[in-house]
């Protein structure tokens, strides 16, 4: 009798703990979807886009970075510039002014994350800037015609589905 009651108690505790972890994971997943958006997701948000603090993800359009100390303007692009879909890429102009200059990895074609608000002027006003690192590691190839930042001559990356 005592044994089955202990089992029951452990069972209930396990359900509660697993339920909490599952609930946290589920709500975490939901919030990461609503606040961490891609450029197409931002354009589909409608009026809501202007009211919320957002984090927008994209690739830095080559040649678009204009740096002036801690004030940086650039264009975020939906796809990398050498992607076959680059021509159809949605663009977002970002104006960043924060307390610190962007990290070293923030350069042409880098995946970046801007946090701030979307203005009615169509410009995203960012107060935080994060670079995302690709999970691709390759040495610099200075002889590549693409220039100093060229990486492996990998097959043109397919955008993730």
């Amino acid at each position: 009798m005592k044994n089955s009651r202990t089992t029951l108690r452990i069972g209930i505790a396990a359900v509660i703990i697993l339920g909490t972890i599952g609930w946290l994971a589920y709500t975490g997943y939901g919030s990461s979807k609503s606040y961490y958006v891609t450029i197409p997701e931002l354009s589909h948000m409608g009026q809501k886009a202007f009211h919320e603090q957002l984090r927008v993800e994209g690739f830095v359009k080559p040649g678009s970075i204009v740096e002036d100390g801690t004030h940086v303007t650039f264009v975020l692009s939906q796809f990398e510039s050498h992607s076959p879909k680059a021509a159809t890429s949605r663009l977002l102009k970002v104006s960043y002014s924060g307390s610190e200059p962007p990290p070293d990895t923030f350069k042409d074609n880098a995946q970046a994350l801007a946090e701030g608000t979307y203005g009615r002027d169509g410009v995203f006003h960012a107060t935080e800037l994060q670079a995302k690192c690709a999970s691709k590691y390759a040495p610099t190839q200075p002889l590549h015609p693409g220039g100093a930042t060229a990486t492996t001559p990998a097959p043109a990356p397919k955008p993730a589905a």
Binding site: C133, A134, S135, A138
Partner: peptide
């Protein structure tokens, strides 16, 4: 599973372009 700031897996990955020279 989730969109993270931490890079997607480098190894055993299905992501395009992932890997190490």
């Amino acid at each position: 599973w989730w969109r993270t700031q931490h890079p997607a897996p480098v190894f055993f990955s299905s992501a395009p372009g992932a890997g190490m020279a």
